[in-house]
Design a protein around this nucleic acid. Structure first.
Length: 659
DNA sequence: CTAGGGTTAG
């Protein structure tokens, strides 16, 4: 591939990896120092040729001309090459980069580790990881800088496992010691792996190395460590490292807040944010911090809390930062206030693909599929190319709204018009779209025709559809695959048991439940919560400690009687026990969302919307009861379940009973 | 040459 000439000054045999000791180490130890010239530059410096023309052309951004002059320049210096390489990165020109590289080799700089570092960084910036690797492979004098540059390049390219293999070789085969940069890169490599193996153990091993080498007070290293544990979902490990950090700055705090926000612990995220504001005087939150805080508010559907945070963002002038605005759009939409989200979106001066995606998915979760498609098309018209997530968002919107044909057309346009190849997520959307619409055979056909391995998400979507339409046979097939793919996901067992229960196959229900227990798993219990005057109250069906619980039950019983007179029949098929109908009715009446709605009726002012959030999918009985309450108590009720938002008003729901 | 963030997900 490369037709470089052998270096005229240093002739060394090519070894891909070598023992970095002996005289070579001595050469490299002074070669890598940027102020120390190589043999070749030493000559150049003595002739006092600093190539002012090339350098000034580089600084002016006139790369083409600089390369022109370079081709006639007999003595380019190391500094000149450094500027040229940086220019190629900046100009995003691989061809020019290769030209400069070739000339550099001809001029005998191919064993200069300083320039090799720059070259590797350049090729990494130009997304040419193979070239970066080659620079490294051909190099004999490898300083820690060179290793670090390659680690950085590979990590950015997602080749985490390669970094870890090289890291091991560096430790065993060279005398080089890792520095704080090495550690940040190899820690990141643990989570930047294309293979599916969990590299948590590796990360823990590196953690030990870091402590051994005395880096526990290096803020960058420790923050990366927090983030690594966060990405593995090891919240307590992340918290432990964070607590032990002797020095913390805004990045460290943000990493830990993000850890909570991303791992389903929004409450702790807000708590930590509060601690940060109270405990530290010199650490001020910035836009990155605020994004995670907004995410936490969105997860909790804490609208009032979110509005306060929005106010803070405005006061601090962080309201022009794109990620912050996108997070605000999502916050308001997920809190049920689509109008406010739209207003924030409309006020944006500039929009990138993420801003558009947040608006598309906002319409999606509210069930406005048509609006989502409209916004999607508006995005295309405005010249912003869609991302894979744009399609997940818009297909999800079609799914919630039952727009099957529109979804199919969009799905086909992915490859045809946008060169975006569907991933497991996209297929899962299509299976969900078709399955929900009771076109289960078509959904199964999609899976059969998939060109990639259908993952758990795809089979999960199919099983979910089987649940809605009570298709026992297909459910058996889907669950068999699911139990292989994710044996520890309790939700799958529950879904299957519910399907059997609806089909009154009680023996099967028992078997699945036994299976669940045998694996030491538990059904995730339903939990609903409501924000009243900026406080969040949560409910579970087994909660005996709620001081108002008797009042709530009484209210629900009254409603039940009233509803039964009006012809309501409780829907008890979610109950996984073969019990008397009366007993089942008692169970569904205690569902957490009903308690939350009752609490809302009692504790919030009339005329205001009651907003409830639930951790699972809304059950059919709660859905019809809430419809009833919205009419007879004359209240607007918003319920956000795991999938979408239901807007109850005058006895009907915005989902039109399709969810 | 180093650390944290937005949109999606049965």
């Amino acid at each position: 591939m490369w037709a470089f000439q052998a270096a005229p000054t240093i002739q060394q045999p090519y070894l891909p990896l070598h023992f970095n000791n002996g005289p070579i180490t001595r050469i490299s130890s002074h070669l890598h120092h940027p102020t120390t010239a190589t043999l070749r530059t030493a000559t150049a410096t003595t002739t006092n040729n600093k190539n002012p023309l090339i350098q000034s052309l580089c600084k002016k951004g006139n790369l083409k001309e600089a390369i022109q002059v370079l081709s006639h320049e007999p003595n380019p210096t190391q500094q000149t090459y450094e500027l040229l390489i940086l220019s190629c990165s900046r100009k995003n020109s691989l061809a020019d980069g290769e030209k400069v590289h070739r000339k550099l080799v001809n001029d005998g700089f191919d064993e200069d580790p300083f320039l090799a570092t720059k070259l590797i960084n350049m090729y990494s910036d130009l997304d040419s990881i193979d070239h970066a690797r080659q620079v490294f492979d051909k190099l004999y004098n490898r300083t820690i800088y060179v290793w670090n540059a390659l680690f950085r390049a590979l990590t950015l390219a997602g080749h985490g496992d390669e970094v870890l293999n090289l890291y091991r070789r560096m430790n065993y085969r060279t005398g080089l010691l890792s520095d704080r940069f090495t550690y940040t890169y190899v820690l990141k490599a643990c989570v930047a792996s294309e293979s599916l193996v969990s590299l948590l153990r590796k990360g823990e091993e590196i953690h030990a190395h870091i402590l051994r080498d005395g880096y526990e007070s290096q803020v960058h290293v420790m923050t990366t460590l927090v983030d690594m544990y966060a990405r593995f979902g090891c919240v307590s490990s992340a918290g432990y490292v964070f607590d032990e950090m002797p020095m913390k700055n805004v990045v460290s705090w943000s990493a830990m807040i993000a850890c909570y926000a991303k791992n389903g612990r929004p409450f702790e995220a807000l708590e930590l944010f509060r601690d940060m504001m109270l405990e530290t005087l010199d650490v001020l939150p910035n836009s990155v911090t605020m994004v995670s805080v907004l995410q936490a508010c969105a997860a909790l559907a804490a609208l009032e809390q979110g509005k306060l945070i929005h106010g803070y963002i405005l006061r601090k002038g962080l309201d022009s930062v794109l990620p912050v605005i996108s997070a605000l759009v999502t916050l308001y939409a997920r809190c049920g206030n689509l109008k406010l989200g739209r207003r924030v979106f409309d006020q944006m001066v500039k929009r990138d693909v993420v801003s558009w995606n947040s608006m598309i998915s906002s319409y999606g979760i509210h069930g406005f599929g048509g609006k989502a498609i409209e916004v999607f098309k508006e995005m295309l018209n405005s010249g912003v190319p869609p991302s894979p997530i744009s399609f997940v968002s818009v297909l999800g919107a079609c799914s919630h709204a039952g727009l099957v044909e529109e979804g199919k057309i969009l799905f086909q346009s992915m490859v045809r018009e946008h060169c975006i190849y569907p991933t497991v997520e996209h297929y899962a959307c299509m299976v969900d779209l078709l399955g929900r619409a009771n076109r289960l055979d078509e959904a199964a056909k999609i899976i059969e025709d998939m060109r990639i391995e259908p993952g758990a998400k795809v089979w999960g979507a199919l099983l979910g559809s089987c649940r809605i339409h009570c298709n026992v046979e297909l459910a058996k097939r889907a669950s068999r695959r699911l139990f292989e793919l994710e044996p520890r996901n309790a939700g799958n067992y529950v879904l299957l048991a519910e399907i059997y229960a609806e089909a009154r196959m009680w023996e099967e229900v028992k078997r699945v439940k036994k299976d669940l227990e045998a694996r030491g798993l538990q059904k995730v219990s339903g939990c609903s919560w409501i924000e009243v005057r900026r406080k969040i109250y949560s409910f579970t069906s087994v909660d005996e400690f709620n001081p108002q619980i008797e009042q709530l039950h009484a209210l629900l019983l009254n409603l039940l009687m009233e509803m039964k007179e009006k012809g309501y029949v409780p829907e008890t098929k979610v109950v996984l026990y073969d019990l008397a109908e009366e007993e089942k009715e008692r169970i569904v009446l205690g569902h957490s969302e009903k308690l939350a709605v009752a609490f809302g009726l009692i504790n919030s002012s009339r005329g205001g919307t009651i907003r409830i959030t639930k951790n699972l999918r809304l059950c059919e009985d709660c859905h019809s009861v809430t419809k009833f309450i919205s009419k007879y108590a004359d209240r607007e009720i918003l319920v956000r379940d795991v999938n979408r938002i239901h807007h109850f008003k005058d006895g009907v729901c915005s989902c039109e009973d399709y969810w």
